[in-house]
Design a protein around this nucleic acid. Structure first.
Lengths: 202, 202
DNA sequence: AATTTTCCCTATTGCATTATAGAATAGACT
DNA sequence: AGTCTATTCTATAATGCAATAGGGAAAATT
């Protein structure tokens, strides 16, 4: 009688996704260690112990959130990197895809950026490896921009990569809270900043 | 007999500073909620309860750390903003002062950036007010650069301010861990990035 | 209709953690 | 010598929290 109305045919994977969403929201707001499994259960309208039907442990919930957050990043970056466009357009596209998830799910980005360090070693290293792969793809775009003389010869490609990620990631901190700063304004502005500073001056 | 050797005339304020240092180190590593007062006491070589001689509460320790981290930021920025130099030089100087504390005390920066949100409302609003003051000073430098035609007329000064802080803050995440990325390389590179993208193209 | 599976519940254990109370020790001061 | 003050200690209260065990009802499957 309790959960009768909630149950339906559609609720196969949906409820699990809701649980991950709830975890993301709570972890983003209170931080991993500051959040209790009770908090997550509250969002879902269930008992604290019932959460353990969906997650083996609190940390497993964190891993699930982070997995969603990190998903597809590298593959989308690779797709951009392989295109037959200018390096400038690639940089702009990279910033766009990097910020895109923030529109629909900032909480995931925030949890990834701030809480991933609390993962234990098997999962942590997997995530770190995916990050490195992502970073290398971005840096190669910079390097190819230099090689084709579209970007200045003295460009520090590693720092350029860190700058792109730094700009993108820092937006997660205030995205949705800075009035007037919508997706278009941010991505267009940041892409413009980056491209202007990377291009050869003539 | 226990703490005899440690005690001396010099240890007036020094021990408190050590306690704040210990808190900064532990909060930076484990996060505010992930850190226990026991962890901090361990660093100091004292008992958990003894910490309460220096801090009223765990949160008071956090506030002490953050206060140190936030100290002087606005005043140093203001000193730069008032100088009779070009806007470009001001931007470069702003990046430098922003990153300077990271050399000697990254932990403080990290705690400020990641844990300040856990402060309760009296302290939290005070910190936020100081941040806003800092942001306004930076943005005004951008605006004056536009007014003097040193920076492009279409520069989004608010986004430019966020970009400067974003670049600076993101460095706190990897400062000291990215091989080869020393203070000079970062500050010079970032200053260069910013100035190139802000300047009028002619 | 019978059985299995899904999903949530109640109840509880065990541990970690913040904070308080009050005592002890040693150096500074009179 | 005797008192005061700073600093740390022991002991403990009080709570919050992750996780386990086992049950039960509805839905799906046979």
């Amino acid at each position: 009688m309790h959960a009768a109305a909630r149950r339906s045919v559609v609720n196969g994977r949906r409820r699990l996704a809701e649980a991950v969403d709830a975890a993301a929201k709570v972890f983003a707001r209170r931080g991993y260690h500051g959040a209790s499994t009770q908090d997550i259960a509250d969002v879902l309208g269930m008992r604290q112990a019932s959460l353990y039907y969906y997650f083996e442990s609190k940390e497993a919930a964190l891993e699930a959130v982070i997995r969603v957050a990190v998903e597809d990043y590298a593959s989308r970056a690779l797709r951009i990197a392989r295109k037959e466009t200018s390096a400038s357009e690639k940089v702009a596209a990279l910033i766009r895809t990097h910020l895109a998830p923030m529109v629909e799910r900032v909480e995931y980005s925030r949890v990834f950026l701030g809480e991933r360090r609390f993962l234990q070693d098997p999962a942590r290293k997997r995530i770190r490896a995916m990050e490195l792969r992502y970073e290398r793809i971005i840096q190669r775009v910079m390097a190819e921009g230099v090689a084709s003389r579209e970007f200045r010869a003295d460009l520090d490609t590693r720092l350029a990569m860190l700058a792109l990620l730094g700009l993108g990631n820092s937006a997660a901190a205030w995205f949705g809270r800075e009035p007037g700063m919508d997706f278009e304004r941010i991505t267009a502005g940041y892409a413009d900043f980056l491209v202007r500073s990377f291009r050869t001056t003539h």
